[in-house]
């Protein structure tokens, strides 16, 4: 769906995106993670033909970008660095205006498309007040509605849940997953680990312009081979397990053992009351922290001066 090869963008001496090989497959919910300033937005803008690459190639839906932007972009819906609208017009008027631009927006079906998109994002009953009176969350929803106008095959969303309350985040997540279930590929750029972890099937991690991880989420979150047990009988469990306990913190034990079920049977058989027992998995946070350096908004002096 999206494929880049050696994609590089330099601004003067600063390299914003460095030798990027993205591979987003059809049907993915692709999480594009990175700290602020790691080059996420520049990459998104290059995918959409807003920023021109210094070198490297981009293919979206099998066609080169930005050369074939006129064919590709009508099938792409995007939210880039926050929504934008004409503040003096209502949400509906805004969508009608955006719908009238560019190819594929027949006049006869315009009102239906606009109503459809508004209903999808939960703004179906919105009145005619101008956008400057909208809350941040409503603007975000309007931006999403704009992205959905042409029923795109690919959604490129930069921080789509910005400004939404927990209820709204949940709704939008549900909407995106539903769209994905109906065949829309979703490319989600975010610095929120939890958001990516809850939604995505594949993850790419950007660090200082370089792609340091690109993998299925399931693979990244493989079991660590350890089991975390909460028990009021911690000492008894320790005695029973004899050396397999790696770490104890009050009633919480971290135990190195391959089979969690067997461990449970062993503990219960030995008279240990087990409050909870979980096979430990690597969290996305572990993966990201292991793969990346300090965020680009820290400017501490490096340990070894060059």
């Amino acid at each position: 769906m999206i494929r880049t090869a050696a994609l590089t963008k330099r601004y003067g001496r600063i390299t914003a995106v460095d030798d990027l090989d993205l591979d987003v497959r059809e049907g993915d919910v692709y999480g594009f993670l990175g700290a602020n300033g790691s080059g996420k937005t520049t990459t998104v803008r290059m995918l959409l033909g807003l920023v021109l690459a210094t070198s490297g190639t981009i293919e979206v839906m099998g066609q080169p970008m930005p050369a074939r932007a006129r064919q590709v972009l009508p099938e792409v819906g995007a939210l880039v660095e926050g929504p934008a609208a004409y503040a003096h017009l209502s949400g509906r008027a805004n969508l009608a205006l955006f719908d009238a631009m560019g190819p594929g927006g027949g006049r006869a079906s315009r009102a239906r498309r606009v109503d459809d998109a508004l209903a999808r994002v939960g703004l179906g009953g919105v009145d005619s007040r101008p956008v400057h009176a909208y809350s941040l969350g409503m603007r975000q929803r309007l931006g999403l509605a704009n992205a959905l106008l042409r029923r795109p095959r690919l959604l490129v969303l930069d921080e789509p849940t910005n400004g939404l309350d927990p209820q709204g985040i949940r709704e939008i997540r549900g909407l995106l997953l539903e769209l994905n279930a109906h065949g829309t590929t979703v490319f989600l750029s975010s610095h929120l680990l939890a958001e990516i972890e809850q939604m995505c099937t594949r993850v790419g991690v950007l660090d200082q312009g370089r792609l340091v991880v690109q993998e299925q989420l399931d693979v990244l979150r493989q079991p660590t081979g350890r089991v975390v047990v909460h028990t009021p009988d911690a000492d008894r469990a320790r005695a029973l397990l004899d050396g397999q306990v790696e770490h104890q913190d009050g009633e919480r034990l971290v135990i190195r053992v391959p089979d969690a079920a067997a461990l449970n049977a062993l503990l219960v058989g030995g008279g240990v009351r087990v409050a909870s027992l979980t096979a430990e998995r690597r969290t996305l946070e572990d993966v990201v922290l292991a793969a990346t350096s300090a965020g680009s908004d820290t400017f501490s002096v490096p340990a070894v001066a060059r």
Binding site: L48, G49, P74, V80, E81, G82, A84, A85, F98, P103
Partner: peptide, 14 residues
Amino acid sequence: QAGTLRYLLIRPVG
């Protein structure tokens, strides 16, 4: 400045 330029261009408007 209003941020609408990027949304115009990715509609796409040449």
